[in-house]
Structures are given as structure tokens and as C-alpha cells.
Design a protein around this nucleic acid. Structure first.
Length: 415
RNA sequence: GUGGCUGUAGCUCAGUUGGUUAGAGCGCUGGUUUGUGGUACCGGAGGCCGGGGGUUCAAAUCCCCUCAGCCACCCCA
């Protein structure tokens, strides 16, 4: 019989991996709460049009990566490929437009891509969204959360912040025209993929990795010189704000976001190591998104980070400081008695109890060491006649007798 | 979707120009006279050598197909 197998690009999380996930989520939540952001959790299932309307039909996510299907009720549904559009939808459906919306979320996202390092079909993101009236302070605030988050994970020094402005709609319209003119003149020098992109979405040519393309792109006009006065003013406020906060960043005029809803601010935290999937955390401003989905005229800015990608860059997890104490008997007849004691123990979470029921006494000690126990409690036949237990400390090798009634006090005092 | 690399025990891998019952380390498990570990010794379980087909007296080994995994491109977190 063939072994059952998992869906391609999905992972079971256990052992070290899930510890890393939890570790990252905990730090993320703490950073968000410290800025008074509120949690939101939206469904994994959404109507397809939430994403087709907002991300742009030329985006790869919509054109080839969405897990969509028609259900038994003839609804066209999708496993959400990203969080921002879903949150915009939630704000509209719950009539939250009037509130100040400082939100954070975490959960699985789905894209049907060919898996590789740092890329999965089901992956996990954490993200923040700040909705309201446009104000550069909001951009700064979500960047501060990102800074705090990455710092506390100890990986801020491994990444750099790259920043660009995509300007407002007017800016992009003019820039796109200029860029198209420029690229069209040199279309023969471009790769085939870039020739295609030139027709559909010329700004995508800017972040091509093709060396030939890069030569051409290097000489292309810069969007930063096309910013109109509103866009320019906004971007200047943001960069001087970052300077004041002493947050280091690099301007990268080739940084374009893949999704249509972005405008003005665009940024990425990327690893300085040479890796193919180097964007750990990325985001930007999306002023038109909510109104585009039929809601009010609400500006927004936010980011999302890939938990798996961050986990790949985590040096090591801090060991949890709970101590393992093994419990076993000298005779299996007494296992029931010992279980009763364990069941009645009321301890705080300082220790983990590991009950051992198989093997000779020697093997039980052996196993205790194997799993890194701090010590063990042994219920021995002869000591049990006077209701006593043996405590053995593995560091010192010493053992002592304790009354079974007092075991709780004993352990509490010890740990 | 397009390429490259890799599939042998639970894990990491050996396996010589095709040659008989398929190997190691770690892990798991049992024991070393029956109540004491971290480091010893002896044993055991566990493999349709990813799957299918072909060449051959003979295939883990050579050829073809297929599946899976990893990596890269595209794109993105």
C-alpha cells in the first residue's frame, strides 16, 4: 500500500519548528500590543472577488496562484492568499470605517506556487494594518512596530530596510508613461519576460533579476524624480521622520510592490545574506483599497512578515527554563500509586513532569538522563512502606527521602 | 509553468568495474544475576534500495518512464 502523503508545499509543524513559530508570534503580539494595536482574525475562506478586485488581474497571485474553487452552493471561494484585502473587507462588512483601526493579525495564507526554500503553498504571516486618514506618522508607527519586533527577535542586524515611494495615482500615471517610452526604445535589449511585462505592468521590469535587464533598468528614469508635490512632501516627511528616529534605511528606486493596491510608501526588510527569498517583512501604503472594495474613502498602511522566512533566520531559540523531573517506580505494581500522586500535584509551570513506566530501574534512570531531566522522584517499594519517596538530583548525584504528603512543598521550595 | 540536483533502516549516509543471505553510526528496544543514570559490553526489531518497465544468466548499481523531495527561475512573505 502506498504511504499517505501531505499536500505539496504544506508542512506539519512540530518539535523545534512549532516552537519557533510560537516564539515569533509571541514577540509579534507583544510588539503590536505595546502600540495599542488590536487583534483581528478573519476567515481563511473569502469570496474570490475580494482579491481579484483589489490585487490587480496582472498580479501573479490572482492570475495563477490563487486556490479558488466553486463550492456546493455555487459560490466562488478562495483560500486567502494574503491578509490586507481580507481585513479591508472585514472593515467594510462590520462598518468599522469610523473607528481608528490599528489592527494586527496572524495566520495561514495560501498560494499555489512551486515550493522551494522560503516559499510554501501554505505559509504563515503576521501583519499589521493602520487605517484612517493619511498621515506619515502612521507609516512611522508601523515601521516602529517592525523595528521593535525584529529587534526583539534578535535579527534586526541581519536585515536592512529598503524604502521607496510609488507616489500617488497621478505620479504613477506619468511615471508609467515615461518608463514605457524609455523601455520601448530599448525593448530589444530586454529579456522575453520583461518584454511581456512592459505591456502589462512596466514597473515590474524594474525589479527583474536578469543581468541584461538590469543594465537597461539602471539607466531608466527614477520614479523619485516624478513625484508630484503632494507625493514628494509626504515622502520627505517620512524619510526625515526616520532620520529623527535614527532608523537606518536605504532608498531603492527599483523597489516595487507586486500588488496593485499600493501607493506612496513601499518598503521591505531584506536579509543581507545572499538568499533567493530575501524579503522577510514587506509592506506599504494602500490608500485606495477600501474604497475600491466598495467601502468609504479610507487610507491605510501596513506590512506582513513571513513566519517561516523569519524562522530560517533565527539563530537559536532560547531554551525554555522549565525543568524536567522524571517520576518512576521501582516496581510496575506501584505505578498506579505514583500516578495518583502526580495527578494530585498542584504545581505552577516551573517544572515538567515526565512519567516513565517501562524498562528496568536502570533503564529508567538512563532514560531520565537521555531526555535531560534535572532530577527524579522515585517511588521505591521499601521506602513506600513508610509513605516516603526518593528525590535524586542529577547534577549533584545526591538523593534524599521525602514524605509523600510533603512532595508538593518540597518541589515548590526546590524550584 | 520552466530548469538543475537527489531518492538505500525512524534519522545521517556507505554500498568498489552489475555478482550470491543489503551495511555503518545515531535512535528505538531487551539484557549484562534481579533497587541507581550520565561514559561500557552483548543481543533484537526495523529495508518490495521511491514506483513501474527494459537490458542481462544476474540490477540498489546500466537504460527509459513516472512519482516525490530539495534548489533555482518567474513571482512573492
Amino acid at each position: 500500500m502506498q504511504k499517505v502523503r501531505k499536500v505539496k508545499g504544506t508542512n506539519d509543524l512540530f518539535g523545534k519548528e512549532i516552537l519557533a513559530h510560537n516564539f515569533i508570534e509571541e514577540h509579534f503580539i507583544r510588539a503590536c500590543k505595546s502600540f495599542n494595536f488590536k487583534q483581528i482574525s478573519t476567515p481563511i475562506l473569502e469570496h474570490s472577488d475580494i482579491f481579484t478586485r483589489s490585487l490587480g488581474s496582472t498580479s501573479d497571485i490572482v492570475s495563477k496562484e490563487m486556490y479558488n474553487f466553486v463550492d456546493q452552493g455555487n459560490d466562488s471561494l478562495v483560500l486567502r492568499p494574503e491578509g490586507t484585502a481580507a481585513i479591508a473587507r472585514a472593515i467594510i462588512t462590520n462598518s468599522l470605517e469610523q473607528d481608528v483601526n490599528k489592527l494586527f493579525y496572524h495566520g495561514p495564507m495560501f498560494r499555489r506556487e512551486k515550493p522551494q526554500s522560503g516559499r510554501l503553498r501554505q505559509f504563515h504571516q503576521v501583519g499589521v494594518e493602520y487605517l484612517g486618514q493619511q498621515n506619515h506618522i502612521q507609516d512611522l508607527e508601523i515601521l516602529l512596530i517592525a523595528e521593535k519586533f525584529l529587534n526583539e527577535l534578535g535579527i534586526r542586524k541581519k536585515v536592512k530596510l529598503e524604502l521607496n515611494s510609488l507616489g500617488n495615482e497621478k505620479t504613477r500615471k506619468e511615471y508609467n508613461k515615461a518608463l514605457t517610452d524609455f523601455l520601448s526604445q530599448r525593448v530589444n535589449e530586454l529579456s522575453n519576460i520583461s518584454k511581456e511585462r512592459l505591456k502589462k505592468n512596466p514597473m515590474r521590469v524594474l525589479d527583474s533579476k536578469d543581468p541584461q535587464d538590469k543594465v537597461v533598468v539602471k539607466e531608466s528614469p527614477s520614479i523619485l524624480e516624478f513625484l508630484d508635490s503632494e507625493s514628494k512632501d509626504f515622502f520627505n516627511k517620512l524619510t526625515s521622520g526616520l532620520d529623527d528616529l535614527k532608523i537606518s534605511y536605504e532608498l531603492n528606486r527599483f523597489l516595487v510592490r507586486g500588488l496593485d493596491y499600493y501607493n506612496h510608501t513601499a518598503f521591505e526588510y531584506i536579509t543581507t545574506e545572499k538568499k533567493s527569498q530575501n524579503a522577510l517583512l514587506a509592506g506599504g501604503r494602500y490608500n485606495g483599497l477600501v474604497s475600491n472594495l466598495g467601502g468609504g474613502d479610507l487610507a491605510g498602511v501596513g506590512w506582513a512578515a513571513g513566519i517561516e522566512r523569519i524562522a530560517m533566520n533565527l539563530d537559536q531559540l532560547r531554551d525554555c527554563d522549565k525543568k524536567i523531573i522524571c517520576f518512576f517506580t521501582t516496581s510496575s505494581d506501584l505505578d498506579g500509586e505514583l500516578l495518583k500522586i502526580v495527578y494530585n500535584l498542584k504545581l505552577d509551570s516551573k517544572i515538567k513532569i515526565n512519567f516513565i513506566s517501562s524498562g528496568s530501574l536502570k533503564k529508567k534512570f538512563f532514560k531520565s538522563n537521555k531526555i535531560g531531566a534535572h532530577g527524579c522522584i522515585v517511588l521505591g517499594e521499601s521506602e513506600w512502606e513508610s509513605q516516603k519517596l526518593v528525590w535524586k538530583d542529577f547534577k549533584t548525584g545526591k538523593q534524599e527521602l521525602i514524605e509523600s504528603r510533603k512532595i508538593e512543598d518540597f518541589l515548590r521550595k526546590k524550584f
